[in-house]
Design a protein around this nucleic acid. Structure first.
Length: 579
DNA sequence: GTCATAATAT
DNA sequence: AATATTATGA
């Protein structure tokens, strides 16, 4: 019955083969326990006599990983004797006598657990936890030879997993119970093994912690470097909570076609330097119930909030701004109006539990960015809309937010505009949806269109779509005035243009109030302004064209070049060059 | 409250 | 590796 080192090296199916010393004077309970243990492939050595058990253990202490010892009215002191003898073993006491002082005494003497009979199948199956715990927490005393392989085995079981989990640990540990190893315990356990493993799997703790409300949770473990203070053997162990979960929820961001859920990811910091990230998802109540914010708000709030029981998992949560959540946000913003739309008020209106002011502020920032087309550098802003005071740009038009890396890279050559070119060209989406067939002659080159870098803001439903006041319309047509196709002109302020128009047809921003023209697009720009715009457009060809301008047609450019005596134009990327 | 930017996710 | 999104802190 001796385990050789070799055997233990290859203990791949731990805890199967766990060697249990069973001492129980009651043959009925003994056989019940035994059969339960053997049912899970533990190896049971049964004794009904303390002396035998003691001598068996003493003669070969390394034959056992764990002992289950019964105490009863008759053998009390003998049971304690075993406790005192087999210090290096995790010892579980059993009894049918519910006596608090006895229990305490057992625990005080080092028993890892005291179980009242009848001992449940689950408890018996889980006794391996005590073995692992002991293996990792020898309490300063040298670890038992028997337990060393356990430690090695557990470490090796956990290590490769950790790597996977960085990518996707959700599935891999889905079916496992929670494994929790306290790395710090060694520091804490000044004495010896007075830190019995919990009698029940930690998953209970985890679920109490996480499984509240109608949320469904998912785990998304992220490994993190462990501070170097810990025992090297323990470094790789992570704290992991996980709940079984519907596969569909395993995606933090679902594919577009799937109904989206509000997801709040919570990082679960175990405090020992390792952490895991837990995603809590729920199904949004009524997806897209129009503008009615009635039911949606409450339901959302119910589910998206990590309540206080999660407090222990301090650290940050990442809010996933689903379109539903965003709708609420927009609704709140609109309700408040521009000048009132500040994070705290928005937060109030949203009534979404768990959402913080910071969350809203962050989202508001992004929202404003897209609404206002803020350019990364102020120069860009200045130049774009020289005829408007800063901030007075038409809020309904998603015209020109170009992150540095997104600016059009294709320059266009000098072009002599006349007033007629300022008349409104047909507006159509530039990308996303194709311009209507034949909407422009094939010869009309859309400057900047080919290879125009676009983010998924333009392309995917995910987050972009709900910003756009004109669904189906892409507003970033470079050089083309952009407006609702059916109306033209920026006189139209759709109600959901979201909060950048105040009640009186004024745009209020940064405390300033600007009059906005309400009629059609103003083509009667002063010569001065036109001139300025032209100059800037020409001198900064990489910038988007101002509202009302469109890039010249290829013919126009070529004609102009020819007129200037430039007949040979180097070919660029297969674009056609005539002449 | 806002903004820039770091951190993180895709 | 680039880009988007969110958190964080000034």
């Amino acid at each position: 019955m001796v385990c050789t080192a070799n055997d233990l090296q290859q203990w791949n199916d731990f805890p199967k083969g766990l060697r249990v010393l069973l001492l129980d004077g009651d043959t009925t309970s003994a056989s019940q326990i035994r059969s339960n243990l053997e049912a899970v492939d533990y190896i049971v050595t049964e004794f009904c006599n303390e002396t035998e058990a003691l001598s068996a253990f003493s003669s070969n202490p390394e034959s056992f990983h764990v002992a289950i010892i019964e105490v009863n009215a008759n053998n009390g002191h003998r049971g304690f004797q075993f406790l005192e003898t087999a210090k290096e073993l995790p010892i579980i006491m059993t009894s049918n006598i519910h006596c608090l002082s006895t229990m305490m005494k057992c625990i005080a003497l080092g028993a890892v657990e005291f179980l009242l009979k009848p001992v449940s199948e689950d408890k018996l199956r889980n006794i391996w936890q005590h073995v692992v715990h002991k293996a990792f927490n020898a309490g300063g005393s040298p670890i038992s030879e028997t337990l060393k392989p356990v430690k090695v085995s557990v470490v090796s079981m956990l290590q490769p997993k950790q790597e996977n989990e960085e990518q996707n640990c959700k599935i891999s540990i889905e079916t496992e119970n929670v494994i929790r190893v306290h790395e710090n315990d060694q520091e804490q356990s000044a004495g010896s093994d007075k830190y019995p493993a919990p009698s029940t799997p930690q998953i209970k703790q985890g679920s109490r912690l996480l499984n509240h409300g109608d949320c469904q949770y998912q785990i998304n473990c992220m490994s993190e470097k462990v501070s170097g203070e810990h025992d090297s053997e323990s470094k790789s162990i992570e704290t992991m909570f996980c709940n079984p979960i519907d596969e569909r929820n395993l995606h933090t961001r679902e594919p577009h076609h799937m109904p989206r859920k509000t997801v709040i990811k919570e990082e679960n910091d175990s405090g020992d330097g390792s952490k895991s990230e837990v995603n809590m998802s729920h199904h949004p109540d009524n997806i897209d119930s129009g503008n009615d914010n009635g039911g949606a708000a409450e339901n959302l709030s119910k589910a998206s909030v990590p309540n206080t029981s999660c407090k222990s998992n301090r650290k940050k949560m990442k809010v996933d701004w689903t379109s539903e959540l965003h709708k609420k946000f927009v609704k709140a913003v609109e309700q408040l109006g521009v000048d009132q739309a500040i994070p705290s008020r928005i937060l109030d209106l949203m009534k979404t539990e768990g959402l913080t002011r910071h969350n809203v502020a962050s989202h508001l920032q992004k929202y404003r960015m897209h609404k206002r087309h803020i350019l990364p550098k102020d120069e860009d802003q200045r130049l774009l809309w020289p005829h408007h005071p800063p901030g007075a740009r038409d809020p309904t038009h998603q015209t020109s937010y170009y992150p540095r890396s997104h600016r059009p890279i294709m320059a266009f050559p000098p072009y002599h505009y006349n007033n007629t070119t300022l008349s409104m060209p047909p507006a159509y989406p530039m990308w996303g949806s194709q311009p209507p067939a034949g909407s422009h002659p094939a010869t009309v080159q859309m400057w900047g269109q080919p290879g125009y870098p676009h983010s998924h803001w333009q392309l995917s439903d995910q987050s972009w779509q709900y910003w756009n006041p004109y669904p189906g319309m892409q507003a970033e047509a470079w050089g083309c005035p952009v407006m609702p196709p059916e109306q033209g002109g920026y006189s139209s302020y759709p109600q959901n243009a979201s909060g950048f128009r105040s009640a009186g047809g004024h745009v209020v921003e940064n405390g300033h109030r600007y009059s906005m023209p309400r009629k059609s697009f103003n083509i009667h720009l002063s010569e001065e302004v036109v001139d300025k715009v032209m100059k800037e457009a020409i001198s900064k060809p990489w910038l988007p064209l101002p509202l009302g301008l469109k890039p010249p047609s290829t013919e126009g450019v070529l004609a102009e070049l020819t007129r200037q005596g430039i007949c040979n134009i180097p070919q660029i990327n297969g674009s056609h060059t005539q002449g």
